[in-house]
């Protein structure tokens, strides 16, 4: 498999605090890779560095060989990166359909064309029946799916999903896992996800990258990573518990 996204030696400091230091990993075309780690490990910062929200102090990000670092977030999106926000950011006063339409307009300038595409994406995320509702009125699980739909509507080459399972009930998690897996299988969509819910990580990802205190401490297949003593020591012991909390006994 060819490499789609390359994160090369990325570092970011906030007022002397190293949030991310020398992190490197890559995401092969068509793969689902998970980025995990305890709170404050630098996962969301890494996402923001990839998405162009802020510039790194060192290192760079490439998409299919093209340098993304230095681009604005909208240019990163244009280059083919779709992202969601951990704290969902729906366009609250717009309808669900218009939320996704805005994303679709990025590559489809004609309204009618973009609207057709938006409706398709909404069907995919099982939000079809909700499309005329105002986004503000959606439940949290629905808003999470709306985030995914809006990012997907921009027709990215890679989707960055920031904790889209957080706050979902186990059945909802399984449903979303299935949707994402279908998406990956049917369209070959590459996905990089930050996730706390281990159930989803184990079910979805082909590779897992583990961060702790801004440093990459482990990488490999899910089963390998779970068995890595370093990972167990810093993270998995507690995270597994909290991640599985939602699924009950």
């Amino acid at each position: 498999m060819t490499t789609l996204l390359e994160v090369d030696n990325l570092s970011k400091q906030f007022r002397g605090l190293r949030a991310v230091s020398n992190v490197s990993f890559s995401v092969p075309e068509g793969a689902i890779v998970a980025l995990i780690g305890p709170n404050g490990a630098g996962k969301t910062t890494t996402f923001n560095l990839i998405a162009g929200v802020m510039p790194p102090n060192e290192g760079e990000v490439r998409l299919a060989g093209r340098r993304l670092t230095g681009l604005r977030p909208d240019q990163v999106c244009a280059a083919g990166v779709g992202r969601t926000f951990q704290l969902v950011k729906p366009f609250g006063d717009l309808s669900v359909e218009d939320n996704v339409l805005v994303g679709a307009l990025h590559r489809r300038p004609r309204i009618a064309d973009a609207r057709r595409h938006a409706v398709q994406v909404l069907e995919l995320l099982e939000l079809g029946p909700k499309r005329h509702q105002i986004a503000r009125g959606l439940t949290l699980p629905e808003r999470k799916r709306l985030e995914v739909a809006r990012a997907l509507a921009t027709e990215p080459r890679i989707l960055l999903l920031d904790e889209v399972m957080a706050g979902l009930r186990p059945t909802e998690t399984d449903r979303l896992v299935e949707v994402l897996r279908d998406l990956n299988r049917d369209t070959g969509m590459t996905i990089l996800l930050i996730e706390h819910v281990m159930r989803a990580v184990m079910a979805l990802s082909s590779r897992v990258v583990v961060l702790d205190h801004g440093v990459r401490i482990s990488e490999g297949a899910p089963a390998e990573v779970v068995a890595d003593p370093k990972v167990i020591e810093v993270y998995l012991g507690s995270a597994l518990e909290s991640g599985e909390e939602g699924s009950g006994p």
């Binding site: 999106c77 950011k89 805005v102 994303g103 990025h106």
Partner: peptide, 9 residues
């Protein structure tokens, strides 16, 4: 922020 993330200049 969300607008920028969907590619709007």
């Amino acid at each position: 922020e969300a607008a920028q993330a969907v590619g709007i200049d």
